[in-house]
Design a protein around this nucleic acid. Structure first.
Length: 934
RNA sequence: GCAGGGGUAGCCAAGCAUGGCCAACGGCGCAGGCUUCAGGAGCCUGUCCUGUAGAGGUUCAAGGGUUCGAAUCCCUUCCCCUGCACCA
């Protein structure tokens, strides 16, 4: 009797996969549904967090299949780029964590040896993903279409894509600045730190380098993020303990730190060292001229100046820069700060004020000074106005003047740009990463106004979940600029057709790929060879251009026409600003409008305690096979679908998953118990159960249509069993209705927990796969408002009884229920019809049988009118349904007696009651009988 | 900086785009009872405060406002989080 989930999972997976029920074949005339998830990058073992999105996709595709769609649900692997290379590198250098993890997962030494090769890493993990994750979760992915992005066929496809981008004039060349290791070449700077050992959070900042001319003609290049403060410069800062060097830049002599020279070499074309070295302290006391402002200022000693940051030369704006303020104070120099910015909340010298406030005493108190600098920077940037000291820019807002001044200074040859990381970045090899200028980098021109505009228009027509993201998308498309699309270096991918030895970057080769799933089937089956797949081939199958050279081309073309476009592309929130926009734009740019994607579904993450994204580096991620073993697949699937909305991050909580495991087995037990039930039909109870079920099926269909899996699962896994339990509790025992409801219920369960569903399906004596049955549809004929209102009435009465028992602590012996007098019901009816309050009162008061109730009537009518105004239309509806409360409650008397352990339950009409010592009967109202307990 | 998300009872987490069915779904935890004499099993009840009659009171980051009525709409403030391009 116990639910053996392990056996059940195995049994049904074997059957499904043997019958290949996942395989999608074109059926002309049958409506199709194409869903896929953003294929995972190959970066090692996945964890329970990854399964969330995959599971959503499987549930949706199973649902659509049951709704009569011909479903295409393919999957593949994104092998391009760095992750698998990074993984192989880790194996090669014997990274202990990596080796331990591999061994824990049962890898022998031979396999580990093999994994030093990135291509082997891809092969190995592709298999893990398919066998240990996807099939293990019962996903009905079309396994005949598996593909990865470094296969020959895929590369042909990408090559074609870039030929087309070029034809559309969407490939352009321009200067670019990228992270670069002097030893290893190009590196990626990102949070996963595949290439680097430090600095994953670093951003590339643009410093403006202002050229201060000294008396001997050499320049001091001061780097700043705030070029507008040039008007407030009072002096220069040089670190006296640092040795500076002289270099020649475009014929000018510059003096900067030696560290700066190294960096500038990678960014400027014309640069060389003159060999002259100058100690910092030898520069002190000399003068230089502020560019544009043409003011002579002295060079002072600033020990806070870091030769590693930018040029190692700093201009001093004490009025508005906390560092400068403190350093100036410490220097003891007799220099008056120059105020140049007016900002709300501060006086003449904001920097001075904040140093005072925060109690900053020394220029080496970096922590506080950084904080102070940030505060002042933000405050002045947003609310600051340049004052009369600022020449032509006086009166402008900082946020507007900043770029203007920068451009002007550059145009006049007084300044230039230098790029620098916001923090130190160290390569895996130990070298400091620099920023390198690439003069002729290739870009995909996503900034193209026409492409952007059409993409925005198309997004309007798409089904995008959640709604918020749909609203966000046009802004993202506007913001999305040109993207560098190739890179030279050791990583996997397709060679760029217009530059030998350069590889297409991994985002750019994963935009149009869903269409390749249609081709990959033919490649996998050997029906077409990658070598055949040239420009002509893809032009024909994707664009319908030219002629088919072979019959199979026609076949593929028909499949493309049938399956495309994608109905849902499902992916994690990390794809919101990069992958999804380029997915849309590439389709819009290269394919005809009828192939543009129809929908996107974004889900959030499973996080660890403390809201951290689960990552292997942080440890503690639960391996998938272990979790499956422990909780069972169906429990996990239900957990993903039901524990929270897809659009929030969820903390992985093993306890919670365990609860779903219990839920699964309790459903199983319940079905078994229900199968034992036999007895008479009651009439009312069966009508009620059918009605409630029909209503829920209607809701569930509505939820599923908008992919609201959570609310659908709630109805299916919680509300329906509650109804069934209530039916039994009420004494229902009609086997026919139970079998009828079970059959529907099991179908509803199927997309979410398919193994359980199949097992139950078999248990109730059905043949075939429930996975291939039709999803239950709303049947209006089962709706019986009367029976539902009656059952609600009973529940309400029981609630009231409970409340009374609780408050009074009475142990009920005899329970009296007094149903509403007829005239009160009449009041409801007439008011609901819209009759005037006054008329109703007048009418009733004049009636003979009510003549002694004048006061009560007018009060009651008034209150009721007020009450009805507050009710929703659904609630009002309940009062319109006519039921016989007296008869119904009499029938329930035994049930109530049993539930409350009373000796007797007496139901009477308030008009004719024989026993009412507490005068309770006067409180009776329609659908709210008065109660007396003793 | 640019773009976006969020703050709900002890905890997690619904609801908030269509204000009233909301003291606020569900779960965890906690308390009591039942069942089971086997397990991290199952079932019922309670869990903001007050209350010996089905009720009332105070809540949904903070402070204002709109409204007969606001967790839900508007404004202000505070605090968290995410993405930002050779990372997928």
């Amino acid at each position: 009797m116990k639910f053996n989930y392990k056996e059940v999972e195995k049994k049904w997976q074997e059957k499904w996969f043997k019958a290949k029920i996942y395989e999608a074949r074109r059926e002309e005339g049958k409506k199709k549904f194409f869903i896929h998830f953003a294929y995972p990058g190959i970066s090692g073992y996945l964890h329970v967090g990854h399964m969330r999105g995959f599971t959503y996709a499987d549930i949706i595709s199973r649902y659509k299949r049951m709704k009569g769609y011909n479903v295409l649900f393919p999957a593949g692997f994104h092998a391009s780029g760095l992750p698998s290379v990074g993984f192989a590198k880790k194996v090669e250098r014997g990274d202990p964590d990596t080796l331990r993890m591999l061994k824990e997962n049962g890898c022998d030494d031979k396999t580990i040896e093999r994994l030093k090769d990135p291509v082997e890493v891809v092969k190995f993990f592709s298999k893990v993903y398919v066998e240990d994750y996807w099939k293990r979760f019962g996903f009905l992915i079309d396994y005949s279409r598996l593909m990865d992005t470094i296969s020959e066929g895929y590369k042909r496809f990408i090559r074609w894509q870039f030929l087309k981008l070029n034809e559309k004039k969407l490939l352009i060349q321009k200067t670019h600045f990228a992270p670069y290791c002097p030893n290893c070449g190009p590196v990626a700077v990102d949070k996963s730190e595949t290439d680097i050992s430090k600095g994953g959070d670093a951003q590339i900042l643009e410093f403006v380098v202002l050229k201060f001319k000294m008396e001997d003609g050499a320049f001091l290049p001061a780097a700043t993020l705030r070029p507008e403060t040039i008007f407030g410069v009072t002096n220069m800062w040089i670190n006296p303990h640092v040795e500076y060097v002289e270099i020649e830049v475009n014929g000018e002599r510059w003096i900067c730190s030696s560290q700066a020279v190294k960096k500038l070499m990678y960014q400027f074309d014309e640069i060389k060292e003159t060999g002259r070295r100058i100690r910092g302290k030898d520069l002190l006391g000399k003068k230089c001229k502020v560019p544009l402002v043409e003011r002579n200022v002295p060079i002072l000693a600033g020990s806070f100046v870091d030769p590693n940051v930018a040029t190692g030369v700093v201009m001093s704006v004490p009025a508005h820069a906390p560092y400068d303020w403190i350093a100036l104070k410490e220097s003891g120099a007799n220099i008056e700060p120059i105020s140049i910015i007016k900002v709300k909340g501060y006086g003449k010298f904001p920097a001075g004020e904040i140093c005072e406030e925060m109690g900053i005493k020394s220029q080496l108190d970096r922590e506080k000074l950084d904080k102070a600098t940030e505060i002042i920077y933000k405050k002045e940037f947003h609310g600051g106005i340049l004052n009369e000291n600022c020449m032509d820019y006086a009166g402008s807002r900082i946020s507007e003047a900043k770029d203007l001044i920068k451009e002007d200074l550059i145009d006049r040859g007084l300044a230039t740009i230098m790029r620098e990381f916001s923090e130190e970045v160290i390569c895996r090899c130990g070298e400091r990463v620099v920023i390198k200028k690439i003069p002729d980098q290739w870009f995909i021109k996503y900034s193209d106004p026409e492409l952007t505009e059409i993409s925005k228009q198309h997004v309007e027509t798409m089904n995008i979940y959640p709604e918020d993201y749909k609203r966000e998308m046009p802004k993202v498309l506007d913001w999305f600029g040109d993207r560098a699309c190739i890179r030279k270096g050791s990583w996997l991918g397709t060679e760029f057709p217009f530059k030998r030895g350069w590889i297409i970057e991994p985002i750019s080769d994963s935009t149009l790929y869903p269409i390749y799933y249609i081709v990959s089937k033919f490649v996998n089956e050997g029906k077409i060879k990658p070598e055949e797949m040239d420009e002509e081939f893809f032009d024909f199958v994707f664009l319908g251009k030219g002629k088919a050279k072979k019959e199979i081309w026609e076949e593929i073309r028909r499949d493309v026409l049938y399956w495309y476009p994608v109905d849902i592309n499902l992916g994690g929130k990390e794809h919101k600003t990069v992958h999804f926009p380029v997915f849309v734009m590439n389709h819009v740019a290269l394919l005809p409008p009828e192939f543009w994607p129809r929908g996107i579904f974004v889900h959030w993450w499973i996080t660890q305690k403390g809201k951290e994204k689960i990552s292997k580096s942080k440890g503690g991620a639960e391996p998938i096979p272990k979790a499956v073993e422990q909780y069972g697949v169906d429990a996990m699937r239900l957990y993903y679908a039901h524990s929270a909305s897809p659009f929030v991050d969820v903390e992985w909580d093993p306890q919670l998953v365990s609860n779903y495991k219990s839920r699964i087995s309790s459903i199983w037990n319940m079905v078994n118990e229900l199968l034992e039930v036999k007895g008479e039909e009651n009439g009312h109870l069966e009508r009620w159960l059918r009605s409630s079920m029909a209503r829920r099926i209607n809701l569930i269909n509505k939820y599923m249509e908008e992919y609201n899996l959570r609310d659908a699962a709630n109805e299916i896994f919680f509300e329906i069993p509650n109804d069934l339990k209530w039916y039994i509790r009420r004494g229902g025992k009609d086997r026919n209705v139970i079998m009828e409801i079970l059959e529907k219920w099991i179908k509803l369960v199927s997309p979410f927990t398919p193994h359980l569903a199949e097992e139950m399906w078999e248990k109730i004596g059905k043949e075939g796969f429930v996975s291939l049955e039709r999803f239950p549809e709303f049947e209006e004929r089962h709706i019986s408002a009367e029976d539902e209102v009656e059952e609600d009435l009973l529940k309400e009465v029981m609630n009231d009884l409970k409340e009374i028992v609780k408050v009074t602590k009475i142990k009920p012996k005899r329970i009296f229920l007094y149903t509403s007098p007829r005239w009160k019901r009449e009041v409801y009816e007439r008011l609901l019809k819209g009759e005037e309050v006054g008329n109703v009162i007048k009418d009733l008061v004049q009636r003979k049988d009510l003549e002694d109730k004048g006061k009560e009537i007018s009060k009651f009518v008034g209150e009721t009118a007020k009450e009805l105004r507050m009710l929703s239309s659904d609630d009002k509806e309940r009062f319109r349904i006519s039921i016989n409360e007296l008869e119904f409650l009499k029938e329930c008397a035994d049930f109530i007696k049993k539930e409350f352990g009373a000796e007797e339950v007496i139901v009477e009409s308030a008009e004719t009651c024989s026993y009412d010592p507490a005068k309770k009967s006067r409180f009776a109202k329609p659908l709210k009988p008065a109660i007396y307990i003793e």
